[in-house]
Amino acid sequence: MRPLLQLLLLFIVSLAAGLGSAWYMIEEGSAFTTARIGPWSVWHSAGKPDADPYTIAHMARAGRLPINATTALYFFAGTDNEGLPLRAQCEYVVEGRPINAAWWSIALYDGTGRLIPNKAERHSFNRTDIARRADGSFRIVLARTARPGNWLPSADDGTLKLVLRAYGVRHADGIAADAAVVFPNLPSIRKVLCR
């Protein structure tokens, strides 16, 4: 009886470890599949013919059609600069220098990937409609109630997700092989206060 119990235990622990590690690497990525630049992460082989199995599984689960990283890059942030989850109860400042792309956009979603309803019907800022300082830098405030300047209305509760899309990436070698080289400084995401 005892060997049978031991086998059962071995199987249960292996199942938990195998599925748990697979889920984590598919959902969150790892050093092999994603590049991290501050709070932002990018799946660097998304859409490529030689994409690794984790990236393929991630995209299949997400239901997205990724653009090959040589054409455009998508960065995702679910945490602030401190690594803490973005929460609707908190106010954040997203601050950055000019982004090295012909067009870029920063959009705010709730934790499930839905756009957040708001009277201003404002869900994103992009290179053409954001108010910038003279040096090209910008500041976006994520908050529930209106703020002066670039205000992205936040949700009532739950978590938040930011997506930074960069089209027409400008890079010397013509290939955005290493996102961290092309974009050494992506916008910071700083928590201001929480309710």
Binding site: V13, S14, A17, A22, A60, R61
Partner: peptide, 29 residues
């Protein structure tokens, strides 16, 4: 045994997910 069985389950899960995901992009399109 634990390490090998975990690694095997991990691989099966990663490789089979693209075929099992009910709402992958192609299904949506």
């Amino acid at each position: 045994s634990l390490v090998f069985l975990s690694a095997f389950i991990h691989l099966i899960a990663v490789l089979s997910l693209p075929h099992l995901a009910p709402k992958n992009a192609w299904a949506r399109v």
